[in-house]
Design a protein around this nucleic acid. Structure first.
Lengths: 371, 371
DNA sequence: CGATTTGTTGCAAACGTTTGCAATCAATTT
DNA sequence: AAATTGATTGCAAACGTTTGCAACAAATCG
């Protein structure tokens, strides 16, 4: 009679050896059966798989990773500015997070979410070195370009959402910020506006590019770029509001606003309203990101859309490519202007399309998209 | 001369044995040194730690977990309704997510984010069984009470954000929904409103409780509860907007709205505005959740605040307690009304505090909060 | 009918840590 | 001086998988 050693210890967790005993086979066979290997007899496999399912067995991932020498996890890093210890402020990033979760899950990867102080971004290298994650997606490039460059140089597979700067040594996915700025501004010009204010902090690479587009459009239309019509409004809520209040107290000489986020646009909207200025009659407003909220506020907000689902897919593609040692690429996503009530065309005869769109460079990132 | 076998294979990853060789000690000593054990000589430890740091070494977590028989990861599950395949819609949940990431990180846990279809919630058990996570935080109880009950019964450590229903067999953290509904409604009554409309889908446990509070307040003030003044507006953006449009087309007989989310409130706001109804003069509006956006729109939105940071801390506490096999508890968080422009007091002599607050039952969850 | 092939299984060695135990050596005690 | 103590260190056995290799039986071939 074989010794029943199932009660060895209060070993609560079930493992392959238990399944193996119950099925009367060896662990090897169980392992192979659960992996779907065709090295094992169909009947045996079915028996084992059924058994495992009915017992809700799931193999220990740590051991698997250890043996296989790789994990199926991708870390998503959300830098936290230590100036304002705010929780994630921008709904845009949050939505991107959701899309990333979906994209990763549907491809069989686990998603490890990490918040990291912006002056400790280096720490994320540990996530890869320790085998916890096979690569890293960084949301929000902000001011950390040099840190990211360092990480990439040391061979950490990273993919970054942000401005697609040529010459960067890491994978980048982003909208066409310059085009976005241009589309928005051209639209405002087409609305008959001439004193178009730019709201955004141009120290951020993405915003800087949008500003270039803004300038391009103005110059293209034969207008001057008035430095007095630029305000470095921060992205974050409270600070943004203060900044805008201050701005509107001192300046009133504008007939349109181009805000670098919908959040800023909506706040501006509210403040203008409170000051008796009507949108879009007195001031046209265009935002950026096309949050789902943009179509629900009043007046509904004209905005530059960045395709989130495609962005998530592209980021996953990119980090996987990075891990395979491929040369870093820039993925520029389709960037379109969505016109709504907050900006009104002056005349009807203007030959602008209702939705101005132009896809840019590469788009292989959307290949595997499920929806 | 010892054989240098460092070039055994293109074994890219550094491990303890490499550090050990360089320091001239055994792996055991390296392991102990990096763990900060005082079994190792101070000088030796310092040498090893410095070496590891300069080489950016980080021990393989899979192996650690395997050996230790436990992981330092907590899974956060975001159920995805398969009706509307929408990405995470509600900014409230998203913000909670951010807070959770912070709370977990600061306590040394990794956060595994998983989106799961609402009819496959059972799958999350695999996360624990496979040793990937030591426990699960579920965001959004919705209609899944029975599934969660099953999980808990099978010994899966879970903590849920949602309605705190007595008799549940799993840990729950939530606001005091009944009180929230009551505070909001009492405030609207104090504003001199009598035809107060309730917007929310009472099939959801949380909303049902808020409705009870709404009813309590009305009855307490000697008013009747008019079934015609209740509308099952869904939480999700698009559907919410359609539902509200439909509602306002058929009903106009109200002078106040109590919406079960700020999102609904803000959308309603916009629609009312478009129909020429002024907020708060014609219609007072109160929302729920106190999104950061609530203080930035125009008019700023009166809302019932649920303390997010405390919620996150409490959820982490709860899932850890669950893992230790403690008896499930309900944590009810402080729930307060934040008055803003969208609702105006009728008279000034009313003896209502500017911020009506009342903390409820337990609050041990906030003990470890850092901010 | 012996030899070879094919299909199915088990054995045992990794994977990179942690940790109980034993070993070593210097310092202290008797 | 022998014996005891205490502080450091190394050895080797886990932890739960996967997988190359060998073993075996049944089926096919010459």
């Amino acid at each position: 009679m074989a010794v029943m050693r199932s009660e060895k210890r209060p070993n609560t967790r079930m493992q392959m050896i238990d399944i193996a005993r119950m099925a009367g086979v060896s662990v090897s066979t169980v392992s192979r059966a659960l992996a779907g290997s065709d090295l094992v007899n169909d009947a045996t496999r079915k028996k084992i798989v059924d058994l495992a399912k009915s017992l809700r067995f799931s193999a220990n991932v740590g051991a698997q990773n250890l043996r296989r020498g790789q994990s199926q996890t991708i870390a998503v890093v959300l830098p936290k500015s230590n100036a304002d210890q705010q929780p994630v402020s921008d709904p845009f990033f949050i939505s991107l997070l959701g899309e990333l979760a979906d994209a990763l899950t549907s491809r069989g990867y686990d998603m490890l979410l990490t918040r990291v102080n912006e002056d400790h971004i280096d720490d994320v290298e540990g996530l890869v070195v320790s085998g916890r994650a096979l690569g890293i997606v960084v949301i929000g490039q902000w001011l950390h370009h040099y840190v990211l460059t360092g990480l990439a140089a040391r061979g950490v597979p990273i993919a970054v959402w942000g401005a697609t700067l040529p010459g960067s040594n890491y994978f980048t996915v982003g909208g066409d910020n310059r085009l976005g700025g241009k589309l928005a501004t051209e639209h405002l010009i087409a609305c008959g506006r001439r004193r178009i204010m730019f709201l955004g902090d141009t120290r951020l690479p993405e915003v800087a590019l949008r500003f270039e587009g803004y300038r391009d459009a103005l110059i293209g239309a034969g207008y001057l770029v008035n430095p007095g019509l630029t305000a470095a409004v921060p992205f974050e809520g409270k600070a943004a509001r203060r900044s805008l209040e201050d701005l509107f107290d001192h300046t009133a000489d504008f007939d349109a606003l181009f805000a670098c986020s919908d959040l800023i646009a909506m706040t501006a909207n509210g403040l203008l309203n409170a000051r008796g200025l009507r949108v879009p009659d007195d001031v046209c407003v265009v935002g950026y990101d096309d949050l789902s909220l943009a179509s629900q506020v009043h007046p509904t907000l004209t905005s530059v859309r960045q395709p989130l689902a495609a962005a998530a897919q592209a980021l996953v593609d990119a980090v996987l490519a990075a891990r395979e040692g491929k040369a870093p690429a820039l993925v520029v996503l389709e960037t379109t202007l969505i016109q709504r009530e907050s900006s009104q065309l002056a005349a009807s005869g203007v030959n602008k399309p209702k939705v101005a769109a132009r896809s840019a460079k590469s788009a292989k990132g959307t290949k595997g998209a499920k929806r």
